[in-house]
Amino acid sequence: MGGLLPLIEHGIKKPVWDCRMCGQCVLHSTGMTCPMTCPKTLRNGPCGGVREDGHCEVVPEMRCIWVKAHDRSQHMPFLPRSWREEFDHLRPPVNNALQGQSSWLNLMNGRDRVTPPGWAAAEEHA
């Protein structure tokens, strides 16, 4: 199952969202736009380099992933309100150990929500 599930997940999510299999999917909170397709793999919003026309600093012919994500998180129909609100959440640093794993599995067993102890301590403190 451990070997098959990532294949199935990738088979579905690659064609639709250009999924990079980070293993800790946040698509629901980013207007169903994969932040790992940002050339800088930014998970917390657009960098300061977005061009005047809304295109990417790195790939001028591509619309900025985060301009798209922001637009969709506000206007995409059928997106639950709680998902729209999550857009502004501070997403923790990527756990690179989960790369290539099934995010579905990691969602079920909670591994995608485990943050480094320093991060977790700061969250409790806040």
Partner: peptide
């Protein structure tokens, strides 16, 4: 890290610990 994550990591360090705790 991205910009906001780096802000948080530096802030965590200001409490006397690394990101690892």
């Amino acid at each position: 890290l991205d910009g906001p994550q780096l802000i948080k990591v530096a802030s965590i360090m200001g409490t006397g610990m690394y990101l690892s705790g």
